[in-house]
């Protein structure tokens, strides 16, 4: 057990954890940020996606100990005063079913749109391919990413 200083959603936090503890479990169990979800633990489903220095990253495989000095953003920190345009699009198109995968989907989408603000459908499909949705809300996710891109441009 050692302590680490992290910066999560703009706030400095100090945590106690084994050096191999993935960021996912630090967020969920230590910091009570349970919006980031566990789905597979092996980087296959995308439920645990957060931003590390603005880039969508799977938090289930990433030891928190190596993240000192990085800016970590979770779903809880995405909306500042108001919803992010991607969240707006998710709401406008009533995307979720059970909702469990959606935080990860939204984090992937927001980071993707930062890199590619004007994607075509194929690019959207490629970008979102790594995020599983067992309820198969894929059609709406695809439309919501396109809608958010339109709104943001």
């Amino acid at each position: 057990m050692a302590s680490y200083n992290l910066k999560v959603n703009g706030k400095k936090v100090s945590i106690e954890a084994d050096s191999d503890t993935p960021l996912l479990w630090v967020l969920r169990d230590e910091l009570n940020l349970v919006g980031t979800k566990y789905g597979c633990g092996i980087g296959q489903c995308g439920s645990c996606t957060v931003h590390v220095d603005g880039v969508a990253t799977r938090s289930c495989l990433l030891p928190a100990s190596g993240l000192e000095g990085s800016e970590i953003t979770t779903i809880e920190g995405l909306a500042k005063d108001k919803l992010h345009p991607v969240q707006h699009a998710w709401k406008a198109l009533d995307v979720p079913q059970c909702g469990y995968c959606q935080a990860g989907q939204i984090m992937t989408a927001t980071s993707f749109l930062k890199q590619n603000p004007n994607p075509n459908n194929e690019e959207i499909r490629n970008a979102m391919h790594g995020n599983l949705c067992r309820c198969a809300s894929y059609n709406r996710i695809e439309k919501a990413v396109a809608l958010a891109a339109k709104k943001m441009s």
Binding site: G35, T74, G99
Partner: peptide, 29 residues
């Protein structure tokens, strides 16, 4: 008429909703 999922805001902002999110003080795993 279309009515958006009543839990939408909680879902898209990552509020604790699911079983895995439930905690009490002193709870072990």
């Amino acid at each position: 008429k279309d009515a958006i999922n009543v839990d939408i805001d909680d879902i898209i902002t990552g509020k604790p909703l699911f079983g895995l999110d439930y905690k009490t003080d002193g709870m072990l795993y």
